[in-house]
Every structure is written in C-alpha cells, then in structure tokens.
C-alpha cells in the first residue's frame, strides 16, 4: 500500500488540519472532528448538519459554507461519525430556527444520527432528519437495509442549503431535501477496489478484465460482476438501472461523479455518453456536474446521479454557493 499519509491512525485529523489551513472560511475543530462555517450561526436561519465516514471527500466537509451546509461531522474512514460529534455540531449551528440532519441511508449513519437527534432534543433544539436513499443498485425492500444514500446527497445539501439561506423554516427546508431525494436516483460502477488506510489491503479483488456493477461508496462489492466494457456500454448499464425506477425525461440535473481514481478525461467521455442516452429518451440535461464530489478513496470508477428538476429546484440549484468544493454566483 502506498498512500500520502503519515500514519493510518491520524489520517482523518491530519486531513482536517489541512482543510483548516487551506480554507479560512471554515472553523475546523480537529480534536472533536467537526467542520463549521467560520462566524457561527446566523440567527433565525435553519442549520444544516451532515456527516458520514471519511474517504468520500469533498463530501461533506467540502460542502460547508454559504448556501450549503453549516456543519459536517467526518467519521473515521468509511465509518459513521459518533453522536458526540453530531450533537456538538447541532448545538453550534442552531440559530434558533432548528437544525436539519442530512443522513445517508447506512445503518451506522442512521443509528448515530438518531441518537444525536434525541440528545439535541433533550437540550431543546428542534431536529428533523432527512434520510437520503437514491442508489437503485440496492433493492428497497424488507430484505435489505434499504437503498443507500449516494450522489443525491450532494444535490440535497446544495438545494436545501439554498432554501435555508433564503430564510425558509425547518419544515420547508426538510421538505425540499426530501423532494430532491425522491426525484433523484444513482448507480455506480467500479473499475478497481480501494484500500482503507488502517486495513492496508484492497476491500475486494477485481480482475483487470472485470468491473463491479452497483457499488456503493464504501469500497463494498456491488451486486454483480461483469466483463469490462466501453464507456458507452457502462453508461447505458447505469442509466438503464436508473431509468427502470425513474423516467429520465424532462429537465434534468445530472452528475457524473468520479470515485476518486478516475481522470476527468474519462468522466467527460462518460458524460458525453450519458447526454446522448438521455437525449434519445426525451430528457434535457439543463444542469450538470462532472468531477469528484462523492468519492471512495482512490477507487477507479464512476457514479451517475439523475434528478428530475422542477423550476423551483433549478432556481435553488442556481442560487449562490461558496464552499471549498462548489462555488458560483457570489
């Protein structure tokens, strides 16, 4: 294993120190692992807190700032954060209008955020959790932990963050986050596994001639394995899976996301395939994002996330944002 780290045990805090050094707009508490906007909560604004395992950067810390999150709680690599962090963040961002928890649907994240919400309510803070579950690779049934939260998390954080910035109340901010989740679907494909620093070994084995279809974002294997194929075919596999659950027509926000080890040249080649596929089915990609936004360490691969836009959602997507990883309009 070759990694640009000092020590597997300190990689998360070392990265937080770097985030703090690079972005004076953030207030980073490296000891308690909480990333906040510098300047504290704005009175009357709904606070947005998200969190999850580390290794998905820029998610979530890179999305803390004007028009998006108020706080992020990074856990250990691929491990959900603990309730203490979430409670600290929730108290720190509460401007009196309550706090939205944006939670990706993984058992650990859901359990820890649930405990944190109870603790925050004991302290008199209104908390509403919204669980993101957009990954169509997992059947949403009694027989699984439910669909995973992946790319739609980025959309929900951006759009709910914009509405909160406009002064909407907690119920409205939560409702728009839920709407984004309901209108979004994702599918991921891995060309290689990744290596958790503390484990030192790849999370699964994949031959040079194979791809893993329907992966999540934690280096976990997917549902099936298939022979390696051209970008056009892999894009179609992802969009067929998405389209089986959500029509890909009308105005769309589409993200082609790299898993951490895929060059932009390949992501743009994929985006071209995605846009041709969508156009052939009556869809119009009116907003897009191409790059590494929700990653899985150094994994090679991509995910596609499609969100069916309304006029209101498009306006909130376009609203100004100023975070380390997304910034426009300001």
């Amino acid at each position: 294993m070759k990694k640009l780290i000092n020590n597997p045990d300190t990689v998360v805090t070392d990265a937080l120190a770097g985030l703090a050094a690079a972005h004076p707009s953030l207030a980073v508490d490296a000891e308690n692992k909480v990333i906040l906007r510098a300047g504290g909560p704005r009175p009357g604004k709904v606070g947005l807190v998200s969190g999850g395992g580390s290794g998905h950067e820029p998610l979530h810390g890179g999305f803390v700032g004007y028009g998006m999150l108020d706080a992020a709680c990074p856990g250990e690599v691929f491990t959900s954060p603990v309730p203490d962090q979430m409670l600290l963040a929730t108290k720190a961002v509460n401007g009196g209008a309550g706090v939205l928890h944006i939670v990706k649907n993984y058992t650990g994240d859901v359990l820890n955020f649930q405990m944190a919400a109870e603790l925050a309510e004991d302290e008199g803070i209104d908390v509403v959790p919204v669980v993101i579950n957009d990954d169509v690779a997992v059947e949403d049934s009694l027989y699984t932990a439910g669909r995973r939260g992946t790319g739609a998390t980025v959309f929900a954080e951006k759009i709910a963050g914009a509405l909160a910035e406009e002064g909407a109340d907690l119920a409205a901010v939560a409702a728009v986050a839920r709407e984004v989740n309901e209108r979004s679907r994702s599918f991921g494909v891995a060309l290689s596994p990744c290596t958790i620093p503390a484990a030192g070994k790849p999370t699964f084995e994949l031959a040079d001639t194979e791809v893993e279809l329907g992966i999540g974002i934690h280096g976990e294997p997917g549902r099936t394995r298939a022979p390696m194929a051209p970008a056009s075919e892999l894009a179609a596999v992802a969009l067929d899976a998405i389209g089986a659950d959500l029509p890909v027509d009308g105005d769309l926000l589409v993200m082609v996301n790299g898993m951490g080890g895929t060059p932009l040249i390949e992501l743009y080649a994929l985006f071209s395939e995605v846009s041709q596929y969508v156009r052939a089915r009556g869809g119009r990609i009116t907003r897009s994002l191409v790059g590494n936004y929700i990653t899985s360490l150094e994994m090679q691969g991509f995910s596609v996330t499609v969100c069916r836009l309304s006029g209101a959602l498009a306006r909130l997507w376009d609203a100004p944002v100023e975070t380390p990883a997304l910034r426009w309009g300001r």
Partner: peptide, 12 residues
C-alpha cells in the same frame, strides 16, 4: 463505545 466507535457496531 457509543462515543468512540461509530458505524453501526458502536451504537449497537
């Protein structure tokens, strides 16, 4: 364990 582990196994 709740404070330090994270994941599902910490709370459980």
């Amino acid at each position: 364990l709740i404070s330090k582990v994270g994941g599902a196994s910490g709370p459980l």
